[in-house]
């Protein structure tokens, strides 16, 4: 094993715990963003729905994971039949 690989491995060891935390914070921020985008469909007025509407196709793939994480076993929105 060459020196570079050893350093990479060492870095990976030390970064392991942090990677999880950062990924979690990022996911929390994403979740908040989802709530903002879907707020209209959940009955919370969203003044920016005209713009966020365009984001839906990009978010659809992760929608199922998101509603599961939010504690909803089935899709909360009639229009989206992900499960």
């Amino acid at each position: 094993m060459d020196f570079k690989k050893i350093i990479e491995m060492y870095d990976a060891v030390l970064r392991q715990g942090h990677r999880t935390e950062i990924a979690r914070e990022l996911r929390d921020e994403d979740d908040l963003f989802f709530i903002l985008c879907y707020s209209d469909m959940l009955g919370i007025p969203n003044p920016a729905f005209y713009y966020t509407l365009e984001l839906y196709p990009h978010m659809l793939e992760r929608f199922h994971e998101w509603h599961l994480r939010m504690g909803m076993d089935k899709s909360p929105i009639n229009g989206f039949r992900c499960c």
Binding site: M9, Y10, A12, V13, L14, Q16, G17, R19, T20, A23, R24, R27
Partner: peptide, 18 residues
């Protein structure tokens, strides 16, 4: 990609130990 991530055993041991 957050909590559940398959990890090389040497890296995981190092992290577990530290």
């Amino acid at each position: 990609g957050v909590d559940f991530v398959p990890t090389n055993k040497f890296v995981l041991w190092g992290h577990h130990f530290t």
